[in-house]
Design a protein around this nucleic acid. Structure first.
Lengths: 230, 230
DNA sequence: TCTTCGAATTGAACGAGTTCAAAAATCAAT
DNA sequence: ATTGATTTTTGAACTCGTTCAATTCGAAGA
């Protein structure tokens, strides 16, 4: 009784304020960028006191975390739609990567900060951190689906670690995208085209006996990487 | 006449103050880490006014740049010594990577910030930026030497782009090292062992006709990457 | 020696993120 | 409806990076 009422109270009043603050923040971030957006400006436009913003978000950085999960949600629908229709591995991977870029594109303006904080081991926003585990797990699962649902043969040794490696790959692409100031983000798309091509070629070649030592070595490596960050 | 006198004046007085500030800063960074070190604290221990620190270093971040070149200098001697003695490619690459880690190890405490700022496209510390071009060029040249002086056959197609790719690789290792909190940085060394193994295997395999499409694709990719950041 | 000009130095002041004690609002229980 | 506790809200105050106008210092030229 006490519990539920408290919960609903928290939701109706608190959550509403929280939502307003977050919406306002993202709005301002898109308008002016991150550094240029003041906590005072957020509070003012949201119609709350400065301190109140800190009641809901421990720091300015913590606002970014909310942004993360939003992006993640927005990606789910188009990704699943693609994976249900397209059986060709190359097209699946290519499509997913394009979706990744398209969904995050409106925020390119403040993407620098996104990775700046993400690269800091101490930051909770760090994609390897405890705190981002849920999103990370879902994201890796998506790459597992890319492989599973395809009509290509993937060597069974790779089944285990490849999704994680693809997730790492997508982080690399994101890093490139952040630095990419070309028109229409042309360079990033080009990079995706080329790297996906290589990846699919390599995945195909992996079954070749000649590649066995490399394959084994790469798998040991992937396993290490994964446990190091876990 | 005027020139030389001015120069020497700049050196004797200004440069000395500059040096004191930098030394003090690095000292404090090692002691307490970056975030915890105040510009006021640096100025105070260095025995100068706050504003004076800003006369020599445009910002707190710019102190890191000085750190970069110091690290780079410290790496030169042991690297060249190794490359003169050791002809085996695997051992050369392994040795260089170990030197990279060993020289930067005392600063692990504030390494997070190092990459945090480095990942920001706007930051002058960004390793892809205009401002870090000289150090980057030298660093890539070192990896070229690793290849050139070895007794392994490196496919001629690779000569052009491979040094750059190895530099990128060393950036990746550094990123891992930053996040590595294992005893004696054991995980980083293990990762180096495994990745160097794979790299040397791949470099060897690259001459195989079967690998031709992958090799060609990888080279196109490397060329793109390089021009994108230049 | 005196003047002059640029380099070096100073410290007050500003802006922005963050903290915190106190006030206000909300809600459960009597 | 009143009380008491808990959540929410407030805004002043603090810290720290950064800027800048003013001052001091040092040396070259008269």
């Amino acid at each position: 009784m006490k519990e539920t009422k408290k919960e609903s109270a928290k939701t109706s009043k608190g959550e509403q304020t929280r939502a307003v603050i977050l919406e306002t923040a993202l709005e301002l971030f898109r308008e002016r960028g991150y550094e240029e957006t003041t906590m005072r400006a957020i509070a003012e436009r949201a119609g709350v006191a400065l301190g109140n913003a800190y009641y809901y978000f421990r720091s300015k950085e913590h606002l970014i975390q909310a942004f993360y999960s939003r992006i993640h949600e927005e990606r789910q629908a188009p990704s699943l739609e693609l994976l249900n229709k397209e059986p060709d591995l190359m097209k699946r991977l290519l499509g997913i990567m394009y979706i990744m870029v398209e969904t995050i594109e409106p925020y390119h303006r403040f993407a620098g900060v996104l990775f700046r904080t993400a690269a800091d081991p101490k930051s909770p926003l760090n994609p390897f951190s405890e705190e981002s585990e849920p999103t990370r797990r879902e994201s890796i699962a998506l790459f597992a689906q890319v492989l599973e649902g395809s009509d290509s043969k993937v060597h069974k040794d790779l089944k285990q670690e490849l999704p994680y490696l693809l997730w790492l790959y997508h982080m690399g692409i994101t890093l490139f995208w952040i630095h990419d100031s070309s028109a229409g983000r042309a360079r990033t798309y080009k990079l995706i085209d080329r790297t996906v091509d290589i990846l699919v070629k390599l995945i195909g070649l992996a079954s070749n006996p000649l590649m066995r030592p490399v394959r084994k070595a790469a798998l040991r490596l992937a396993a290490d990487l994964r446990t190091a960050s876990a």
